[in-house]
Write a protein that binds this DNA or RNA. Structure first.
Length: 211
DNA sequence: GTCCAGGGCCGTT
DNA sequence: AACGGCCATGGA
């Protein structure tokens, strides 16, 4: 058993099963609507705390904006206003709009998108403005159940702390996790969720360790 | 008032 | 390829 599997076991024994504890992202199975929510939230969460995202999401719900199609239906200015609490709201409104447009025009449904070649789909997502590696992988992993390991700030801190790698570049870390784990979307979802839960519950120091 | 949160873009070097 | 400024809000 390698270090990565051990780390997963360790987090799991400390934090328990992530499903249900941590938000929609780890809930399985997901309805179509839930998958679209996850995709929308993947953009809203960029460099923003979760409370602010929840406020934005609640505004969207109040305005009955639940799906990608709903996003295309409303005015971009109005969208920006609705998601204002999530910060960077003008940029995010435009990112959401182009993402929704891309998905609806090219695939018309999430089911069709799930049948696309995953590596090609990832490349196409990365071509969209506002969709970098973390957002693309969050969409693929949590929205579409595709096995891409998500690397975020929490993951980097954990890697640093556990001295698993000196190179903290996105692709390097993603390859490291993916080459050392079974390529299973459920494992990747749980593992990443556990990393976040562990960080949030302060089992892992988020900033400088308190000595 | 200050700091920060699960990024990513763009211009500069 | 790497780096820094920038985008913006609400809560601690």
């Amino acid at each position: 058993m390698n270090q990565f599997v051990k780390l997963y076991q360790e987090l799991k024994s400390k934090c328990g099963r992530p499903a249900g504890q941590w938000h929609l992202w780890c809930k399985r199975p997901k309805t179509k609507k839930e998958r679209e929510q996850v995709i929308i939230e993947a953009v809203l969460t960029q460099r923003t705390n979760w409370q602010n995202v929840e406020q934005a999401v609640s505004h969207l719900k109040k305005a009955k904006v639940y799906t990608l199609k709903d996003i295309l239906r409303i005015d971009k200015q109005r969208l920006a206003k609705l998601i204002k609490p999530s910060g960077f709201y003008r940029a995010k409104a435009s990112y959401l709009y182009s993402l929704a447009k891309f998905i609806m025009e090219n695939y018309s449904s999430l089911e069709k998108m799930q049948r696309e070649n995953p590596l090609l789909l990832r490349k196409r997502l990365l071509n969209l403005k506002g969709i970098g590696p973390e957002t693309a992988d969050s969409i693929l992993l949590y929205g579409l159940d595709k096995p891409f390991f998500v690397i975020d700030e929490y993951t980097r801190r954990l890697v640093k702390r556990k001295r698993l790698s000196n190179n903290l570049a996105y692709h390097h870390l993603q390859n490291l996790f993916m080459q050392n784990l079974k390529k299973d979307y459920r494992l990747f979802q749980d593992f990443h969720a556990l990393i976040v839960i562990a960080a949030k519950t302060n089992r892992i120091p988020q900033r400088k360790s308190v000595k």
